[in-house]
């Protein structure tokens, strides 16, 4: 929470208290929402994100050009009325491909982030409160994952599980689940370290000691007192992971480990377009721009969430 300005707590604090009206019927959740709404960038981010999600959700039903209609008469054409975002080297309509690919990219980004944050928080929290040997073991595991050569390992996992999983839940969903688990499974380590470090410092704080003196169980201390105060950095880290996951997914596609080549995703379109930067800049620009705007919007939402959930912060 570096750089945050906290409310001054002296004379004006008393004035605010004494001047207060009688009991306000405000729940903490509503209070957080009220504070979030005052964060302009966060609201803008939320609106942009909602628009993006809406566009990719209903876009393909309105823009009915097929994603794989090849048209050699319009190869690498710039934006026009027939193709608002231009076409790629096979003359496929980029708008249709972007709308379809956005579904996969946004979903992969959010789900992989959730996997990383939830798993990392869990490991970090257990390591932070568990006795020495368990803590050391979990941190060794974290270091192990950090030092593994990720790409060969990803290759192995996907190679091993791809067929058995796609056999159960179908091709696209199978690959989707696998990619989210694999990307999230290689991003949880910094979260775990972050959460553990926060717990180690917070559990010595007097308010946690007070909870201990009141007889609060370890889980109550962690859930009620420690984790809410450790949340800020985790939320910020989480928003950055969304971007990383979208890019990582495109890397997997590039290596032939992700979705099949004929399935467009933002990352894949960006990779394909980079070879044509000099003659068809629109190709990489629109896909890159979509990733950029989405990530920026999520980042602002994350910032707003962090501030809205911290009652000390004046908004």
């Amino acid at each position: 929470m570096a750089g945050s300005t906290h409310a001054s707590v002296t004379a004006d604090g008393i004035a605010a208290v004494t001047a207060a009206p009688s009991v306000r019927p405000v729940t903490p959740g509503f209070e957080a929402w009220r504070r979030f709404r005052r964060h302009r960038l966060a609201v803008a981010g939320a609106v942009v994100l909602a628009l993006m999600v809406l566009t990719v959700a209903i876009g393909p039903t309105i823009w009915r050009v097929p994603i794989n209609a090849i048209d050699f008469s319009a190869q690498v054409a710039g934006p026009s009325l027939a193709h608002p975002l231009g076409t790629d080297s096979l003359g496929q309509d980029l708008l249709a491909r972007m709308l379809y690919g956005g579904r996969i990219s946004i979903a992969v980004g959010l789900v992989a982030m959730a996997v990383a944050v939830i798993f990392g928080t869990l490991i970090g929290a257990v390591a932070g409160v568990a006795p020495g040997p368990v803590d050391a073991g979990l941190m060794w595991l974290t270091d192990l994952f950090l030092s593994l050569p990720q790409l060969p390992f990803l290759l192995l996992i996907i190679y091993l599980f791809r067929h058995s999983l796609t056999a159960i839940v179908g091709e696209q969903l199978g690959i989707f689940i696998l990619i989210c688990i694999v990307i999230g499974g290689f991003q949880w380590m910094p979260v775990a370290r972050l959460v553990r470090a926060q717990i180690l410092s917070l559990r010595e704080k007097e308010f946690v000691e007070a909870a201990r003196a009141l007889g609060a169980s370890t889980s109550r201390q962690v859930v009620r007192h420690i984790l809410p105060n450790a949340l800020g950095p985790v939320i910020v880290a989480g928003t950055i992971y969304v971007a990383q996951a979208i890019i990582a997914e495109s890397t997997l596609d590039f290596l032939g480990l992700g979705f099949p080549p004929d399935v467009p995703t933002w990352g894949r379109i960006l990779y394909d377009g980079q070879n044509y930067l000099d003659i068809a800049p629109h190709w990489a620009l629109f896909s890159g721009g979509a990733i950029f705007v989405t990530v920026l919007a999520i980042n602002f939402v994350g910032d707003g969430l962090r501030d809205a959930l911290d009652p000390r912060k004046v908004i």
Partner: peptide, 13 residues
């Protein structure tokens, strides 16, 4: 009683 729903930072030492 109206202090119940306030947060600690709103109070003096």
């Amino acid at each position: 009683p109206d202090h119940m729903l306030r947060y600690p930072h709103e109070f003096s030492g």
